[in-house]
Design a binder for these strands. Sequence first.
DNA 1: GGATATCATAGCATAACACTCGGGTATTGT
DNA 2: ACAATACCCGAGTGTTATGCTATGATATCC
Lengths: 142, 142
Amino acid sequence: MRLSTRSHYGLKAMFDLAQNYGSGPIPLKTVAERQNLSDHYLEQLIAMLRKAGLVKSVRGAQGGYVLAREPSAINVGDIIRALEGPIAPVYCVSEKDPGSCDEADYCITRTVWARVRDGFTAVCDSISLADMCREAKESHKR
Amino acid sequence: MRLSTRSHYGLKAMFDLAQNYGSGPIPLKTVAERQNLSDHYLEQLIAMLRKAGLVKSVRGAQGGYVLAREPSAINVGDIIRALEGPIAPVYCVSEKDPGSCDEADYCITRTVWARVRDGFTAVCDSISLADMCREAKESHKR
DNA sequence: GGATATCATAGCATAACACTCGGGTATTGT
DNA sequence: ACAATACCCGAGTGTTATGCTATGATATCC
């Protein structure tokens, strides 16, 4: 099981924006430098996040990106879905468009994959950016 | 999030062997036909399962494959690991060889991926082939 | 010894991934 | 006005994984 680096980088970037939430728009270059990512590549990723309605952009000088909602209202699952598409361990149990499998009715393996998917999404949807910020604060104390 | 078809096909094949557990070795061609898979490709997959110690082979005429252990002692996680390698949403939290990330100590996103991984493995390791056989029997009643 | 199987390796077309590059457009401050 | 800043967009590219197919060798049973 593997996610692409899109999720990896995307979560880093979103976490960065969450930690700076309230300080106005943050230029992408700043995020890329802080998180040690290629800024050109990150641009493509943030475009996906913008189209998914997770971030808002402010163009021009002193512009940048801001979270579209409060950190507590954005969770890891949102980010993964925006960057990797609907969550599906195998195509026939895709979140979106269940996939047309003629064995769907009686296929036992299918129900297994559905449970695997649900276990995965349960975790992803239970962790918000706000949770991560809180955790970061606590780990910094020590 | 996506698994390759290896897991998809592999689970189907292993489930087939589980349902025929106790009837001696099953030739791969039979499994492939029943599960509607390319037998040549399945051969490669079962080789991986054999090397992982999940199935035993009997060569020659009247030969075939048998589960190496009882269906209750083989779970979905075993099969996925055999076919896809160690489970890791992102490289830095791989089950095997955690990956050398210099940010590992303080990286918050890393702890998130670890939780995602654990949620995933918890489900996979909780479903055995025996469970699937039982489920199949019950759904057949109806 | 022939039929039936597993075993092993190589090859190959397609697609996804992880970028880079080169521009264009909007906004701000001077 | 104009330059600097920063978002926006599409095309191109090397690498890797995927999902096969094909060919042949080896072992075992009857």
